[in-house]
Design a protein around this nucleic acid. Structure first.
Lengths: 195, 195
DNA sequence: TGGGTCAGATAACAGTGTAAACTTTACGGT
DNA sequence: ACCGTAAAGTTTACACTGTTATCTGACCCA
């Protein structure tokens, strides 16, 4: 490969990795095919990423930031609405992000924990930031954080089962989307659990 | 390998596959290590299973039957309870099955759709049977089937995020379990959506 | 002119799923 | 008792995978 000052190569690796991830899926993302596509040898990638997991972690980070950008935008657009309408928009945006960026969603939330072993704890910040946006729409109280997780989990359940193709095709995505969103909305109105 | 009449070998393959799946996890389940453990060559396995996916499909089937057995037992035990109590027990049993048989749960509901491509459509029956048990606890109506899916999805969301280790450890499993179950129960009491 | 440093390449190790061709074993019929 | 056949299992090979240790070549600076 012609030398180009390092950071350009790193960028090329990530660009191609994104492309493969979206076009062919995670399974096709191999260090060798990646190197072949950008015109370098596999070992060159190891100059910029400690290993394949580190590369994936970078993609996870990207995904988390994309998601945060989208959710933050929704919050801005619904600043004048009530918290129910805001949650409806937020849940809808999360759902759509998952299905429109399936391969990103997969590495972000579905990839085997083995690949997360070396995921630096610091980086979870960008992930947590996203979830807090859900919790913040809920009435204050000691159970607010866990209720935020619950909303997220339920949305994730539908999305991940759709992505994993475990739901009978006779159920339409729109139908499932609507139901998942309304369940999230219901938790905004619900009285917080006292304890 | 000493010859033993075929079906014994098939049984040995499945037994060892189960063991590896539960002890070392899906990632460690390789045709070669499997063959090594039962004392045959990798190609012998191909006499009994078309390929690795076919072997996994068999394990998925096993898991589906295990799950069905457990849920059916719960239904028997709660035959005299009301539908709310029955759903509480059902959801709890599903949740516990997922976390007590993580590796089974993974291949059943979380494994990449690529591995499902060749999963014979007929076999989905055993999967559907499980989900219908949820729907049957709901009030009758046109939206009953999809509401059953919704209950299942929400439960799956929490379980799969726990298995994938994407939930902050400060949230206890019991807390998340309770919340997930109560959300399922809430759908039994809810008025069905009229349309 | 000589070092040193950094980007990248070579070659190799250990592993993966899978297919074609080959060998061994067991059994049923003459 | 023998032999042919079919089943059961093995050998060998292909085309992949992630990863490492070692080596090469280019550039900058003293």
């Amino acid at each position: 490969m012609t030398r180009n000052g390092g950071s350009q190569t790193r960028a090329a690796i990530l660009k191609e990795a994104r492309r493969v991830l979206l076009d062919q899926g995670y399974t096709s993302l191999s260090m060798r095919s990646l190197a072949g596509a950008i015109g370098c040898t596999p070992t060159t990638i190891y100059l910029y990423f400690k290993n394949k997991d580190a590369l994936i972690h970078t993609l996870i980070d990207e995904g988390m930031n994309m998601l945060h950008g989208k959710l933050a935008q929704v919050l801005e657009e619904t600043a004048d609405s009530d918290s129910i309408e805001r949650m409806r928009a937020l849940a809808g945006a999360y759902f759509d992000f998952g299905l429109e960026n399936q391969e990103y969603y997969e590495v972000m939330f579905m990839l085997h924990p083995q690949h997360m072993d070396r995921y630096p704890a610091v980086k979870y910040r960008s992930a947590r930031r996203n979830l807090e946006l859900f919790a913040e729409q809920l009435p204050e109280g000691p159970s607010r954080p866990v209720a935020g997780i619950q909303i997220w989990s339920a949305l994730h359940g539908t999305i991940s089962l759709l992505i994993a193709q475990r739901i009978d095709k006779k159920f339409s995505r729109d139908e499932l989307r609507e139901l998942a969103i309304e369940q999230a909305v219901a938790m905004v109105a619900a009285r917080p659990i006292e304890n």
